[in-house]
Amino acid sequence: MRVVVGRIGRAHGIRGDLSVDPRTDEPEKRFAPGSSVLCRDRVLTVAAVRPHSGKLLVTFDEVPDRTAAEQLHGAVLEVEVDPADVPDEDDAFYDHQLVGLRVLVDGTERGTVLEVLHLPAHDSLLLAVDGRRVQVPFVEAIVPDVDLAAGTLTVLDRPGLLNPEEADEAR
């Protein structure tokens, strides 16, 4: 099973270094020198990594120069994980663990998680709620509880979050 661990930003310098926005709670594990990641249709091996302005600067063996690095701008980096594996941190989840969870709002089941969206600012959840597809930021202020054992995820409703018509009424 593939898990998203980062998104490639701009090339940095002339040697092929890449700015990577980590999308994992385990960047030290996923981007350790010698580890491999999947990028589009190829495998990239981490040669070196260092922190830089809140992101990582990563050098891959297969990216020899800036020209090669620029071709990877915007690419998603993934790794293969065993479906039974779980992240080390208690409040971290793999996408496949979240997809299919029942969505609870005020204790009532209202839908299911369809997909995890890895957006530039933060991750979001695409939900099927009351027959509509709704995108919800996957942040603790809106999604305070994920209970994998129960198969549920709690969403705190805000005016307009789950029902766009309510946003107009709240004004």
Rank of each mutant, 00 (worst) to 15 (best):
R2Q: 09
R2V: 04
V5P: 00
G6V: 07
G6M: 08
I8V: 14
I8G: 11
R10T: 14
R15D: 09
R15G: 09
G16H: 00
S19R: 09
D21V: 11
D21M: 10
P22S: 12
P22I: 05
P22N: 10
P22F: 00
R23C: 13
R23V: 12
R23G: 08
T24V: 12
E26G: 04
P27S: 02
A32K: 15
G34Q: 07
G34A: 12
S36P: 01
S36I: 05
V37F: 06
V37R: 01
V37D: 02
L38H: 03
R42N: 14
R42L: 11
V46A: 02
A47S: 12
A47R: 14
A48M: 07
V49A: 15
P51A: 13
S53N: 15
S53G: 11
G54C: 05
K55E: 12
L56H: 03
T59N: 15
P64V: 09
T67D: 08
T67A: 13
A68L: 05
A68V: 00
A69Y: 01
E70F: 02
H73Y: 06
A75Y: 01
L77F: 02
E78P: 00
E80K: 05
V81M: 06
V81H: 02
D82C: 07
D82P: 00
A84D: 01
A84T: 01
D85T: 03
V86Q: 08
V86W: 07
P87C: 10
P87N: 07
P87L: 06
D88G: 05
E89G: 03
D90M: 03
D90I: 02
A92K: 04
F93Y: 15
F93C: 00
Y94R: 01
V99I: 13
R102I: 11
V103S: 04
L104Q: 01
D106T: 12
T108M: 12
R110P: 04
G111F: 08
T112K: 14
L114T: 10
V116D: 02
L117C: 14
L117Q: 13
H118R: 09
A121I: 15
A121V: 15
A121P: 11
H122N: 15
S124G: 15
L125S: 10
L126G: 08
L126F: 05
L126I: 06
L127F: 02
A128R: 14
V129P: 00
V129L: 08
D130R: 15
G131A: 12
R132C: 10
R132L: 11
V134A: 05
Q135N: 13
V136L: 07
V139P: 04
E140R: 14
A141M: 00
A141E: 12
P144T: 09
P144N: 06
P144R: 05
D145M: 10
D145P: 01
D145T: 08
V146H: 04
L148Y: 07
T154I: 10
T154H: 03
L156I: 11
R158S: 12
G160A: 13
L162I: 11
D168K: 15
E169N: 13
